[in-house]
Design a protein around this nucleic acid. Structure first.
Lengths: 189, 189
DNA sequence: ACCTGAACACCGTTCAAGT
DNA sequence: ACCTGAACACCGTTCAAGT
C-alpha cells in the first residue's frame, strides 16, 4: 500500500468538511432528524456524495459531535482532578446536559446510546457513564448524596435536563435541575 | 335539516371505531409517529377512509385520547376535593405523568400543547394546567412547597417524568420523580 | 478514487371516480 | 354520504455510469 492511498483526494476532503459544517448547522436548527438531502444541497454536492462519506445519519451525527465530545472529555479529566466532589459532580451534570441539549433529539440518542452498541455514540456514552460513576462514588464517600442514589439516577437527570432545555426552555431546565439536585443531596442540617 | 342527516351511516361509524381501536394499538407500540397507512390497513379500510374520518394525525391522536382525558379530568375533580393538598398534588403529578407516558412522543406533544393552539390537545393541556395551578396554590398555602416553586415547574416535572418513563424505564422515572418532589418540598424539620 | 443523479422504496396526503 | 385507490410530493438510500 502506497502512502498516496492513505491521503484523500483534495476535493473529497473538502466535500467531507463542507458536509460536516452544513450538517452541524442543520442539526442545530432542525434537530437530529434534519433532511440529509437538504444538507447535501446546502453543501453543494449530490446526495450520493453525502452517503459516500457518511453511510448513514448516525455516522454523520457522530462525526459532527466528535470535536464536541473531545471538549467534553477534556472537561471530564479536569473534574476528575477537582478537589470538591460535590462541585465536580454538579459541574459534570451541567456539562453533559448542556452538550446533549445542542440539538433537538440528541437527548434521546444519548439516553439510549449506552445500551445500543450499534450507535456511533455508544463509546462516548460509555465513557460519559464511567466518569459519572466515579464522580458519584466520590460524592457518596464525602456524604454529599442521599443513600441509594445511583449513577443511573444522575445519568437520567442529565438526559431530562437536556430534553427539557430543547423542549421548553434552558431556564426551565435549569430550575428543575436545581430542584432535583436538592433532592439528591438528601437530608440537610 | 332532517334528523337522518345527523345520524352517521352504520358502516361509516364502524370504520371510524375500527380505525380508532387500531390507532390506539399502533400508537402504543410504535409511538405517536406510527404509520397511518399501517393503521388503515390493519383496520381493513383504504387510506382515504382514514383521512375522511380524521383529517390529520393530530385529530386521530386527539380522538384516541378522548376517553383517556375524560378519566384524567374525572380524577382531577376528585383531587380538587381532596383534603390533603400535598397528597393531592403528588397524586395529580403521578396521574398526568402516567397518562403522558402512554405513547412514545406524547410527552413532547403535551409539553408543547399549552402554547400550540393548533394542537388538538390544546384545550386538554389548558385544563390540566388550570388544575395544576390550583393544586400548587393550595400546596403553597399549606406551606408544603419551597418558596418560588411555580405551576410551570410542576408541569415540567410531569413532562420529564413521562419522557423518562418511555425513554428509560417507568422505574427510573419513578425514582427521579421522588427526588425532585423532595427538592420541591424545600426545607424540612 | 470519488462524484453524480436517476431509480427505487416508502409514507403522508389529496381527490376523481365509484357505490 | 361514504369509500376506494391511483396519483402526487417528499425523503432516505442505493448504484450504475461517469470523470
Amino acid at each position: 500500500v502506497s502512502t498516496a492511498a492513505r491521503r484523500p483526494r483534495a476535493d473529497a476532503r473538502r466535500n467531507a468538511d463542507r458536509l460536516l459544517a452544513h450538517a452541524e448547522t442543520a442539526f442545530r436548527s432542525q434537530g437530529t432528524g434534519a433532511s440529509l438531502e437538504g444538507i447535501a444541497r446546502a453543501a453543494g454536492v449530490a446526495i450520493g456524495t453525502l452517503y459516500g462519506h457518511y453511510p448513514n445519519r448516525r455516522t454523520l451525527l457522530g462525526a459532527v459531535l466528535r470535536e464536541r465530545h473531545q471538549a467534553l472529555f477534556h472537561q471530564a479529566e479536569e473534574l476528575l482532578d477537582h478537589p470538591e466532589p460535590g462541585d465536580a459532580l454538579a459541574r459534570w451534570i451541567g456539562a453533559v446536559a448542556e452538550h446533549a441539549a445542542a440539538y433537538t433529539g440528541l437527548a434521546e440518542i444519548i439516553a439510549q446510546g449506552v445500551d445500543d452498541e450499534a450507535s456511533e455514540l455508544h463509546s462516548a456514552c460509555v465513557r460519559m457513564e464511567r466518569t459519572t460513576e466515579t464522580l458519584v462514588r466520590r460524592a457518596h464517600a464525602a456524604g454529599l448524596l442521599r443513600a441509594g442514589v445511583t449513577a443511573a439516577d444522575v445519568t437520567a437527570l442529565m438526559s431530562t435536563t437536556a430534553w427539557l432545555s430543547t423542549q421548553i426552555s434552558p431556564e426551565q431546565a435549569r430550575r428543575q435541575l436545581a430542584f432535583t439536585l436538592e433532592g439528591l443531596r438528601g437530608d440537610r442540617v
